[in-house]
């Protein structure tokens, strides 16, 4: 266990925990977009910046989602420096994705009044945090999408910008996406997955008893493969089982 202070309050934390873990566990607000408890932290959105003072009295800004707690660490989450850096980051994000409702709300909350930078036109809502790719890889295990290219050409895409062969249409990417850049809709017997660079449609499997479409066929195939059970085990929806 190590002792640290956040905003003047003293906490004990297990070694290996991050500043964000401790703050969130104690109801101290730190804005985040690319963080999700189920996947490894990545430090992409830069909104969780906090100011730390180490033992030698040196102050610096770090991403709280990646910074492991240390003995005697003094963390401040709302110094003028932190506030101004977060506002700046927020302005960049808003300039990139002016259409995102989530970003606008968060911008208001952080006190961003005006975006000084030229705003992207007809852009998607993707902030390139890679959360969808990380969830797809770490949680689902399908690895259907990833960040491709570099620098200004960086994009979220499937390999070769083609329909993915490994996507199981589970919709986890749409669920975790912090800005709503990925959409997942079920229309009749198809699931439509709309991503910034590609829209894919998948057939849904029908429950044998009630006739409801309950999961994409590819996801059922995935269940069968993962569990080692027969396909017959998955003919019914969870409600009819």
């Amino acid at each position: 266990m190590v002792k640290l202070t956040i905003d003047g309050r003293e906490f004990q934390a297990e070694e290996g925990k991050t500043i964000l873990d401790v703050a969130q566990g104690n109801n101290i607000y730190i804005p985040t977009l690319c963080y999700h408890e189920s996947v490894a932290p990545y430090g992409a959105c830069r909104l969780c910046m906090v100011e730390i003072t180490n033992k030698r009295g040196k102050k610096k800004l770090v991403t709280s989602c990646l910074y492991p707690v240390e003995e005697g660490l003094d963390v401040k989450t709302d110094t003028p420096r932190v506030v101004s850096v977060r506002r700046m980051v927020m302005e960049f994000l808003l300039a990139r994705c002016p259409d995102s409702e989530v970003l606008r709300k968060l911008g208001d909350k952080l006190g961003v009044e005006k975006v000084r930078f030229s705003q992207e036109e007809d852009k998607n809502k993707c902030i390139l945090c890679g959360l969808c790719a990380r969830a797809c890889d770490e949680v689902v295990g399908a690895s259907a999408i990833s960040l491709v290219n570099r620098g200004v050409d960086r994009q979220m895409a499937t390999p070769f910008f083609d329909a993915s062969a490994t996507c199981i249409a589970c919709g986890s990417c749409a669920f975790v996406c912090p800005t709503g850049a990925i959409k997942c809709e079920d229309i009749g017997d198809t699931r439509k997955l709309t991503m910034p660079n590609i829209t894919q449609e998948f057939r849904l499997a029908k429950c044998k008893a009630c006739g409801a479409y309950w999961a994409p066929e590819r996801q059922v195939d995935f269940f069968v493969k993962k569990s080692g059970l027969t396909r017959e085990e998955y003919e019914l929806c969870p409600d009819c089982r």
Partner: peptide, 10 residues
């Protein structure tokens, strides 16, 4: 995964 190969290649 092909996604990783493609990410690195691009």
């Amino acid at each position: 995964p092909l996604t990783r190969v493609y990410s690195v290649a691009t």
